[in-house]
């Protein structure tokens, strides 16, 4: 288990690098489309980019690495159980790191948007958990049926592209702190169905992954 944790922890930091890079790209896009930028507002919005980037990494990059690392670790004598646990450990770690960074920024940059952000953390947690479950379900599908996985990933790329575009357009309009806070305050409320969806998706993901992993044949 020690080796397993070591591998997945290192993998988390590698992914974290990708998350930061993706967030930076989103930030640059919004910087270019924004006029009369106010630094405090921009900084307080950054954590949202970070969350979008984390979702992007968990849904797209991970499904690819799942097809690579799962058989690789099995080929190095890891048990199927530990591979599953390790993968979930990684997901929790990357979500925790993302939210910790978000909170840190919001605490350092007090303001209307930041206080909305801090109150939105439970919602963001749910969204991130669901996204990670979806991502790993896709990875599992990708392992089993390559074509279906490919179609799904293309679809998701479209959605991600749309989100980036929307974020860019939105930042143009909402750059004033008060309006931004109003829009983002939607995240403050945590609807019951979102809470209910988390265990459903997680259970679905774990069941799906275990079913496949249990009988998986290693091919490199």
């Amino acid at each position: 288990m020690k080796r397993n944790l070591k591998f997945w922890t290192r993998y988390t930091w590698e992914s974290a690098g990708v998350v930061l890079a993706a967030a930076a790209v989103l930030a640059v896009i919004s910087l270019f489309s924004a006029e009369g930028l106010d630094f405090a507002t921009f900084a307080a919005v950054m954590p949202y980019y970070l969350c979008i980037a984390a979702i992007f990494v968990m849904m797209m990059i991970n499904s690819g690495s799942q097809t690579l690392y799962v058989p690789l670790l099995l080929s190095m004598g890891e048990t199927r159980r530990n591979v599953l646990l390790g993968f979930h450990y990684y997901r929790l770690l990357i979500i925790a790191a993302t939210l910790a960074l978000c909170s840190a920024v919001w605490l350092l940059m007090p303001g209307e948007v930041s206080s909305v952000g801090l109150r939105s953390i439970p919602t963001l947690l749910c969204v991130l958990l669901i996204a990670s479950a979806l991502g790993s379900i896709m990875g599992t599908i990708f392992v089993k049926w390559k074509w279906a996985g490919t179609v799904l990933i293309i679809l998701l790329c479209g959605v991600a592209g749309g989100t980036v575009g929307f974020a860019g357009a939105a930042s143009d309009k909402f750059l004033d702190m008060a309006r931004m806070a109003r829009v983002l305050s939607h995240f403050e409320t945590l609807p019951w169905w979102l809470i209910a969806a988390v265990p459903v998706f997680l259970a679905l993901d774990i069941a799906f992954q275990w079913l496949l992993l249990r009988r998986q044949e290693v091919k490199l």
Binding site: R3, K6, G64, L73, M76, G77, K219
Partner: peptide, 20 residues
Amino acid sequence: SGIAAMKAKEYLRIASTYYE
């Protein structure tokens, strides 16, 4: 295969992590 994009160095690093 997914492994085509992997560097030999990384593969050996993972192996060295997993073999006690």
